[in-house]
Amino acid sequence: MSLLSVQGLSKRFAVRGGVLRGVKAWVQAVNDVSFELSAGETLGIVGESGCGKSTLGRAILQLDPPSEGQVLFQGQSQIGLSRRQLMPFRRQAQMVFQDAYEALNARHTVGRILIEPYEIHGLGSGTEREAWARDLLARVGLPAESFDRYPHEFSGGQRQRIGIARAIALNPQLLVCDEPVSALDVSVQSQIMNLLMDLQRERDLGMVFIAHDLAVVKHLSHRIAVMYLGRIVEMGPAQALFERPKHPYTRALLDAIPTVDVTTEQPLKPLEGDVPSPINMPSGCAFRTRCPYASEVCASGIPALEGSDGATAHRVACHRAAELDLSPGAS
């Protein structure tokens, strides 16, 4: 049984306007997303701004309840539960945010921030809670005196360590990380990535790792899902997806990354145009307005995510996937 099973998950937001604040349109931020995640596995989710990756993360954790679809955690449905009923799931599934400063209570000391999860879930005595919180600080590599300090006294990288310490306080099985390193400088980014990989190994954590930086995602993930305008357009083992991309959008993302390799003169090959507005989506395949391979068939219907099942499955949602050779080198 997988740790996490997401089935047909969708999330709609109403766009309101006019004098009576009536619903003018619906934005389909996440559209029919399905995947499985095992313990000890990381699923990377990549895509550009507005593709729905953060909304997906929040919908999985029931921070924003999904509009449709199913979320099973260890086989148990987490949909439509009350706050109280969600408590066991909340203990097992935690989130790490991009902006740790926003996510931490600025008026509380780090010690109090780390003790709070134990209080909420009624675990341990006062002295036990403090001892656990001090252990957490040591585990994420912060000095012991951090306990009595406030979040503003720390650098961005240290704050993210505090955010991670809080997330692992209750010994969760699942961590959803939403752009946890994108606000950090590169030298600090690698420290935090190493910490997350160590914690995963040590605790057999399942991780959903959301980021826009493909190199970061590739380094941390066992499998990767690429999102465009709310849908997964390609999903597969990290290595296969980078070596043999099957969706033109995945290939375009790879081609757009400026690499530090100066030995080969490889100009960037930018995609034309911008991401369409999610309020006014193209018919058929949503990517066809920017796709260099688009043909008539692409307007005909939304392509399904197809391919074999299982852990090594490499699946793609593209009408023309069978005819295209998108491996790097081919053009």
Partner: peptide, 21 residues
């Protein structure tokens, strides 16, 4: 060294610059 290149072996520790600016 600390940049996660695409051609680095995945899931291995990245070299870091210890400490802070």
């Amino acid at each position: 060294n600390s940049i996660p290149h695409l051609d680095r072996v995945p899931l291995t520790p990245l070299p870091t610059i210890e400490g802070q600016v």
